[in-house]
Computed example of a mutant assay.
Amino acid sequence: MPTIPLLPSQLVVTTIFNSIESLGFCNIAGKVFSDEQAESRQEANLKVSTKKVYAQGLKHLEQEDLQGAINKFTAAININPHFASAYNDRGVARYKLGYKQSAIEDLTTAIELNPYRAKYYSNRGFMLTRLKDYTAAIADYNSALLLNPNLAQAYFNRGAIRLQMENSLAALADFESAIRLDRDLAKAYFNRGVTRYKLREVQGAFEDFQKAAGLFKQQGRMDYYQDAVSKIRKLWY
């Protein structure tokens, strides 16, 4: 059978096609996949680095090395600016060092990055309370309890604000919720006793101060124990 000659243009096209195959360019999908794998490994390495630095920050915080903790949390944020937990814990460290405004800014950023963590709202609520911004603090505790209705401390803290604001009935409800969730929360009994006394429930107040005194003594919190005993004596006599 006679051979069909290739035209020059066909020969060029065939040669180029064979060259592309020999260079491996026909496997473009495989090359892209390899790039994705590299990016995935890079992201994984960044996550490991962030968690490692963040864990070092937590260790410093536990040891009360507050500036060391701030430095590590800042380093973690520099690696991953979207790491909400690092902002939260840096805020806690900053607050303990007296940097209250920057602490609140950190908590606000943490909430913006992850608005579904109750403890971020609770922590900011605590800080706002110390700045006497009671309305904003209550709003934060409301958010925290909406996300997690089992936070005894959040109920107690909100109740303490309401007691300060002379909203005794709302405060009483909060202290009762705190006690329901944590039967050993001595301060909740003490504050409920104060609230009951304000509401002229003298017998209930007396019982709460007794319960608080017993718990404070068991927990070795003798200053608070003396306060409770003082309240009992005033009611007794």
Rank of each mutant, 00 (worst) to 15 (best):
T3I: 14
T3S: 01
L6S: 08
S9C: 07
Q10G: 00
V12W: 01
T15C: 05
F17C: 00
N18K: 12
I20W: 11
E21A: 02
E21Q: 13
L23A: 08
N27P: 02
N27W: 04
N27F: 10
G30M: 11
G30Q: 10
V32I: 15
V32F: 13
S34T: 14
S34E: 14
S40R: 09
S40G: 08
R41I: 15
Q42E: 10
E43N: 12
N45C: 03
K47A: 08
S49P: 01
S49K: 15
T50G: 01
Y54M: 06
Q56W: 06
G57T: 11
L58V: 06
K59G: 05
K59S: 10
H60M: 10
E62S: 12
D65Q: 15
L66A: 05
G68W: 07
A69I: 12
I70R: 03
K72Y: 03
K72E: 15
F73T: 11
F73W: 08
A75D: 12
I77Y: 09
P81I: 09
P81F: 04
H82P: 00
F83D: 02
A84N: 09
S85V: 13
D89N: 15
R90A: 04
R90D: 03
G91L: 11
G91V: 05
G91Y: 06
A93N: 04
K96A: 04
Y99S: 07
Y99N: 14
Y99T: 00
K100S: 11
S102Q: 13
A103P: 12
A103L: 06
I104E: 01
D106E: 04
D106P: 12
T108P: 00
T108V: 04
T108D: 11
T109S: 01
E112K: 15
L113V: 03
A118P: 11
A118K: 06
K119F: 05
K119M: 07
F126M: 10
L128P: 02
T129K: 14
L131S: 05
D133T: 03
A136P: 03
A136S: 09
L145R: 03
N148E: 14
N150Q: 14
N150A: 06
R158Y: 01
A160W: 02
I161R: 07
I161Q: 00
R162M: 05
L163T: 00
Q164P: 01
M165Q: 14
E166Q: 08
E166N: 13
N167T: 01
N167E: 15
L169P: 00
L169N: 07
L172P: 00
D174A: 00
F175W: 02
S177K: 15
A178S: 08
A178P: 07
A178L: 03
I179Q: 11
R180Q: 09
R180W: 04
R183S: 11
A186V: 11
R192E: 04
V194D: 11
Y197T: 01
K198N: 09
L199I: 04
Q203W: 06
D208H: 08
D208S: 11
F209E: 03
F209H: 04
Q210T: 08
A212N: 10
A212C: 07
L215T: 01
Q219H: 10
G220A: 04
R221N: 11
M222V: 10
Q226D: 01
Q226A: 02
D227G: 00
S230D: 10
R233C: 00
W236L: 05
Y237A: 02
